[in-house]
Amino acid sequence: MSTSRRKIEHLNFCAHSPVESRKKGSGFDDITLIHRALPEVNMDEIDLSTRFLGKDFSAPFMIASITGGHEDTIPVNRALAKAVEEMGVGIGVGSQRAAIEDPAQEESFRVVRDEAPNAFIYGNVGAAQIKEYGVEVVEKLVDMIDADAMAVHLNFLQEAVQPEGDRDASGTLEAISEITSLNIPVIAKETGAGISHEDAVLLKNAGVSAIDVGGVGGTSWSGVEFYRAKDRNDLRSQLLGEIFWDHGIPTASDLIECDVSLPLIATGGIRSGLDIAKSVTMGADVASAALPFVEPALKNEQEVINTLSNFIYQLKVSMFLCGCKTVSDLRDVPAVVTGWTREYLLQRGFEIDKLSMR
């Protein structure tokens, strides 16, 4: 099956099937931000602006990589791009692999920059494609959308479940290291299974500029592949998708795992402005989400704007109730970690009680 055909299948399953994490969740329910009964802040004067990888944002949020690579995804990416341009936030494109294989698909990615000339936009390529095609192709992908950064996605869980998957992970770190020589920030990006502290250290040493933790809690790509397998009666892949549906590190814990003095993106189960606030308090520079914007984007630009506006207003309320005037203040809010997340982090050896004593 062509990459382009897989892309439209992925989009359809995300739009119409329950593909989110089912058991673990993101871990944000285990995080409590300390409420201020006396916030001493005028909510109307709260400043949500932030700066990430050299670009100004109106709020610490991006629409995470969703789609591209098929002609039917052009209106979806157009709606998303128009919305982020208006709202002053960032966006990532879906994997540009389809455009490498078929230049006719370039327009489905290029439309994002056409409609969002001022927004922060990151490109997207798999580590396997870097190994296969080399740094020169990555440069073409950057030029395709005039990218502000390039994400290298690490989706080996999906590759292992997917019949067409690339299961050769050897040389991945070397490939990532090679493209950090480009004159553009490189983001190491997981896609739903998280990045351990050990791997975060390796990625930092390889020269990446930022890490997108991509933890458990949002879309399960193992779950997406479960539905694809079910449609074609592939029982082996279907069973794999079921077994590994929730495999990995939940996002809230993963922000602590990836605390290696690099900018962090919190992706995986961000479903409200309160989740954004908790992400920043737990160490993220910005948060991002994809699935909440799929259905709105299939309708129109205004629906995407409405969803973004809700997220951002909820973030402002969260900051108000914590007594925060700026995003920088939010990073110092005391937070209590309980439940499974606390148990996980303690067993991993992280000092988390200091979060509650800020």
Rank of each mutant, 00 (worst) to 15 (best):
V216R: 06
V260E: 02
S220A: 09
C258S: 14
T180K: 09
T219F: 11
V286C: 02
S177A: 15
V280W: 04
E198R: 13
H247N: 14
S170R: 15
P263Y: 09
K230R: 15
V208K: 05
E198K: 14
W221D: 03
I195S: 05
D234R: 11
V286R: 01
L274P: 15
P185V: 02
I265M: 07
V216A: 11
L154H: 01
A200D: 03
L202I: 05
H153Y: 06
V161P: 05
L264P: 04
F156H: 14
I195L: 11
G269S: 09
L202Q: 12
I265W: 04
S288Y: 00
G283C: 09
D168E: 15
A290L: 10
I265N: 01
E198M: 12
A210M: 04
S220L: 03
W221R: 02
R236H: 13
L291F: 11
E159K: 10
L274V: 15
V280L: 15
V224H: 03
I184D: 06
G214R: 06
G215R: 02
G269Q: 01
S170V: 13
L298F: 13
A160E: 10
G283W: 00
R271V: 10
A284M: 06
D275R: 07
V152R: 00
T219S: 14
P163T: 06
N205S: 14
I195H: 04
I187A: 08
R167E: 13
V280F: 13
E164I: 08
P296M: 08
F226M: 05
Q162E: 13
Q238I: 12
H197D: 09
G283Q: 02
Q238P: 05
F293D: 00
A277Y: 00
G217P: 08
L202R: 14
I243F: 12
P163Q: 07
A289C: 12
G283M: 00
I256F: 09
I243G: 05
Y227V: 02
P163Y: 01
D231Y: 10
V186F: 07
E190F: 10
A284T: 04
D246H: 06
G171V: 09
S222Y: 01
A287G: 09
I195C: 00
G218L: 06
G248F: 03
L173W: 08
R271T: 13
A200I: 00
Q158S: 12
A252W: 01
V286L: 04
S177G: 15
P292Y: 04
K204V: 04
G215L: 02
H197T: 10
W245R: 08
A169I: 15
G214C: 05
L154M: 11
G223C: 05
G269I: 00
H153C: 01
V208E: 03
T180L: 10
G273F: 07
E174K: 15
D168L: 08
A297P: 08
F244I: 13
G283D: 09
L182M: 13
S196R: 08
S181P: 08
W221N: 03
S170P: 12
T172V: 12
D259C: 10
A229Q: 08
G217N: 09
H153I: 03
V294H: 04
E159N: 10
V286K: 06
V161T: 10
K278R: 14
H247R: 13
P263W: 09
L240D: 11
